[in-house]
Write a protein that binds this DNA or RNA. Structure first.
Length: 558
RNA sequence: GCGGGCGUAGCUCAAUGGUAGAGCGUCAGCCUUCCAAGCUGAAUGUUGACGGUUCGAGUCCGUUCGCCCGCUCCA
């Protein structure tokens, strides 16, 4: 089969637009950075992905396979809000952390974290001698400064204003010293460094770039959460400020107690939640991969600490298998266990399911993270909210009672904050991976572009065509279409189209990724059989028209 | 945020500063008994947006928005 092995992202983007999978958001207004919309086929593709997750994680977890304890895996869903109490994000660590102010050097264009600048400066070879000049009081000694420029600055700190425009900057330095003296103040190291880093024409003093000695922009805080204000008044104060969630998981943790109290669940069990989250990404790029609005499918699986490692491995392996089951087979999908130094402080194990996208190749991009989060989240919320979020394990209690342990020892062992395993998938990333994986060019075919979706994911499930638009074929096709629509319409589109050449109609279905086309021809009229055309091979077989439904049932898996 | 590249029909792309085009796709009609076939016809653009230079701007200049690449970040 003549397929090009390296897929072109441009070709995929182009097809997605052309066939109605993905459009730029707000396109007629010029688009909006970091947002994408789904067209009809994309919306259905993503729904199929979300439904598969819901089915295989919540309604029939792990396809009915037992967990490491030998019992069926139990999960329940919740649906929690995009806007939560602002304190949720303090407890989770999203407020306060993760928004590191950055500075850019106007000379060498490096981007550095503001809180790293001092340390990076100290590490620079040319910086020490400069500081010692200052500390020895020789920083206004023009000759000493010139020596420093000659020895270090000219080679290693070329961006520094002092190096680039010696004369003017030295004048300004002396003027600054004079000014301070008149006010009875002494120059600080900070002022000194700023003065020699800042170009003469600049109105404001700038920090020094640790890379080239140039002038840095003022620190810019990156606002990673979207802020909003609750209440219909126009007032926008800290009192009514709220945030759009940066992840769905916290909604689960803060309803953990309610689920326990109202649904007769017992540990171990999981709570799942899908929905939109928002992050003000620093650099939203790579098509939909890093969008500012994205959908997650997260499960928090709660268990006893002693059993948590088994469950972690169980979920890690199942999630990998699940992505494979919906069509991401082959070398493009990997399960990557994090190195110990890569782990969050509370995690004793994290893996990523990663996909080799055309834009990450030869590297990989994360589809899902499976993290052992310990008891971090529930403990945080217990501490911040004051609510008791522990669990009394009655099954364990019964076992220990049978062993004859003393009562207070039993109570001690049976009351604990559960540990939690978090498989957290990105549905938009998943959909993008499905699109990339499905995209195939086969130059040997008259219509080379084919979307080879797994039948369960395909947004169009089947098409019914009359071979030609006459001789009673359209009527038979319409009847079969109506039957299939009634039976399978909830799973995706069922198409029919009597116009134009059959080849063109097949080609359209190939581009849209429809796995099966049923064609009514003259034989159908005499012997009640139809041809089934397979998208991936183009091969045809003849089956009885009354077997079409069962043919699809066997293949659509749902 | 900075630097570089790009922006013309649904898609891929043309158009010396001088009347905005082609191919494919889409739609309609004819034809057609299995793979974007054939014939005929049709629709589709404030050339991303705003401003400027010019007798005249898709083309030159400025600003802005979006996309791609790099720096950097990614709970």
């Amino acid at each position: 089969m003549a397929e090009t092995s390296i897929k072109s992202m441009d070709a995929i983007v182009s097809l997605c637009k052309r066939r109605g999978f993905i459009y730029p958001a707000s396109e007629i207004y010029g688009g909006i950075n970091g947002f994408w919309d789904y067209g009809p086929l994309g919306a259905q593709l993503k729904k199929n992905l979300r439904d598969a997750w819901w089915q295989d994680m919540i309604m029939n977890p792990c396809w009915g396979r037992p967990g490491p304890d030998g019992e069926p895996v139990r999960c329940v869903p919740v649906e929690t809000r995009i806007i939560q109490h602002p304190k949720v994000w303090e407890a989770s660590g999203h407020v306060g952390g993760f928004n590191d102010p950055m500075q850019t050097c106007r000379q060498c264009k490096k981007l550095v974290r503001a809180d790293h600048v001092d340390e990076m400066l100290r590490e620079a070879e040319w910086f020490g001698p400069l500081v010692s000049l200052f500390e020895s009081g020789d920083h206004l000694d023009i000759d000493r400064l010139r020596q420093w420029i000659k020895k270090y600055g000219a080679k290693q700190a070329k961006g520094m204003a002092l190096v680039r425009e010696q004369k003017k900057v030295l004048e300004l330095l002396l003027a600054l010293a004079e000014d301070l003296r008149n006010r009875g103040e002494e120059m600080t190291l900070h002022q000194f460094l700023q003065r020699i880093a800042t170009p003469p024409e600049s109105a404001q003093l700038c920090d020094m770039c640790p890379n080239c000695g140039g002038d840095l922009t003022a620190p810019r805080a990156f606002n990673l959460m979207f802020k909003t204000f609750v209440g219909a008044t126009t007032e926008q104060t800290d009192d009514n400020a709220a945030y759009l969630r940066p992840e769905t998981a916290q909604g689960i943790f803060i309803q953990f107690k309610n689920v326990l109290d109202t649904t007769r669940v017992k540990l171990p069990f999981g709570i799942g939640n899908t929905g939109i989250s928002f992050r003000n990404e620093v650099t939203p790029r790579n098509y939909t991969f890093r969008s500012r609005e994205f959908e997650q499918a997260e499960l928090e699986f709660f268990c006893h600490p002693d059993e948590s490692q088994d469950w972690y491995k169980f979920w890690r392996d199942f999630r990998m298998e699940w992505w494979q089951s919906i069509g991401l087979r082959g070398d493009n999908l990997v399960l990557r266990e994090h190195d110990p130094d890569e782990l969050s402080h509370y995690s004793t194990g994290t893996s990523d399911v990663e996909y080799r996208f055309p834009f990450t190749a030869p590297g990989f991009g994360e589809l899902e993270g499976i993290a052992h989060r310990g008891c971090f989240d529930l403990s945080q919320h217990q501490e911040h909210s004051g609510a008791k979020l522990d669990y009394f394990d009655t099954e364990r209690q019964a076992r220990l009672q049978a062993q004859g342990l003393p009562k207070d020892e039993i109570n001690k062992q049976c009351r604990y904050i559960p540990h939690c395993i978090e498989p957290a998938a990105g549905l938009d990333r998943g959909a993008l991976a499905l699109l990339c994986e499905a995209y195939t060019r086969d130059e040997s075919r008259p219509s080379p572009e084919i979307m080879r979706f797994h039948p369960r994911m395909a947004p169009i499930k089947a098409a019914v065509f009359p071979l030609v638009n006459k001789d009673g074929m359209p009527e038979v096709a319409a009847k079969l279409h109506a039957e299939l629509f009634k039976r399978f319409g909830h799973l995706g589109f069922i198409e029919t189209d009597p116009k134009q050449s059959i080849g063109k109609r097949y080609a359209r279905m190939d581009e849209a990724g429809c796995p099966y086309c049923f064609t009514i021809d003259s034989e159908t009229l005499t012997d009640q059989t139809v041809t089934v055309r397979d998208r991936d091979t183009g091969a045809q077989e003849r089956i009885a028209i009354d077997r079409v439904t069962s043919y699809l049932e066997e293949r659509l898996d749902g």
